[in-house]
């Protein structure tokens, strides 16, 4: 299917009973863009992301991911996206290699593809020696990098990262972002939620959600100008203060 935008969202809404978690949000994400999706806890980020990944059915509105309709073409979307959740998503009792092979396998990749790509990946992550080590033996930073590599192993069009760097030290976070840039330069669109405002600065464009609505959407530089702020942190605090909903 021909499409120019990686993601298009129009008045996308999700209600749980009387509670409107996501309130008619609209935005577009370009191909190869790193799109930051920010918001306080309970602002509706995760719900919005879950709708785009096909984990949750929207109540109203329109959205396409990789050119496919979130209402009707769930299966096609799943084949074209990668996903990394805030919870650590590899199997601790499997070795590094087994984890990679498993994820390659469930995406239906051929053995030849898996073998070649595994070799490249291990070399790239400097994990050749650890290939047959159980994942639980690895330090957290390595696990996160491995999890990201696994999420884009099947070469998806878009990768969704839900707070991928939680609990990781600044150096590793930096390395992690280098990997994100590398993926983006290979044409993968990156859709990332984060709590770290320094990370927001790394994004091409950033949206900030407050109480289920998108309050601001621009480049980090643009946002700082609009809100007369010196950093993204300031921008975020100014917007988040308007929130009526409490945490959770």
């Amino acid at each position: 299917m021909q499409h120019n935008k990686a993601i298009t969202v129009e008045n996308l809404t999700k209600r749980f009973g009387n509670f409107t978690a996501v309130d008619a949000i609209s935005f577009e994400v370009d191909k190869g863009e790193i799109f930051g999706f920010l918001g306080a806890n309970g602002a509706g980020k995760t719900t919005a992301m879950r709708m785009l990944c096909g984990l949750s059915l929207p109540t109203a509105g329109k959205a396409t991911v990789a050119g496919f309709d979130v209402f009707k073409q769930n299966e096609e979307i799943k084949r074209n996206i990668g996903y990394m959740s805030q919870k650590f998503s590899l199997y601790e009792d499997l070795t590094v290699k087994e984890n990679i092979r498993f994820y390659g396998g469930i995406y239906g990749k051929s053995n030849a593809f898996i073998k070649e790509k595994t070799g490249y990946l291990l070399q790239h992550l400097h994990l050749e020696k650890e290939a047959n080590v159980l994942v639980k033996e690895l330090p957290l930073g390595w696990k996160q990098k491995l999890a990201f590599s696994v999420a884009i192993f099947h070469e998806p069009e878009i990768v969704f990262l839900d707070e991928p760097t939680g609990g990781v030290d600044p150096v590793t976070r930096r390395e992690f972002w280098n990997m994100i840039y590398e993926a983006a330069s290979n044409g993968i669109t990156v859709f990332v939620t984060t709590h770290y405002m320094d990370e927001a600065e790394y994004c091409n464009r950033v949206s900030i959600m407050v109480d289920g609505k998108i309050e601001a959407l621009d480049t980090p530089t643009g946002l700082k100008q609009t809100y007369h702020a010196s950093s993204m942190d300031d921008v975020f605090v100014q917007l988040a203060r308007k929130a009526v909903r409490s945490d959770g």
């Binding site: 096909g54 984990l55 799943k78 990394m84 959740s85 919870k87 650590f88 998503s89 199997y91 469930i106």
Partner: peptide
């Protein structure tokens, strides 16, 4: 509990 189920559900499986 581990969160891997979510990953499975996002996969084409």
């Amino acid at each position: 509990e581990l969160g891997t189920m979510e990953i499975m559900l996002v996969s084409p499986l």
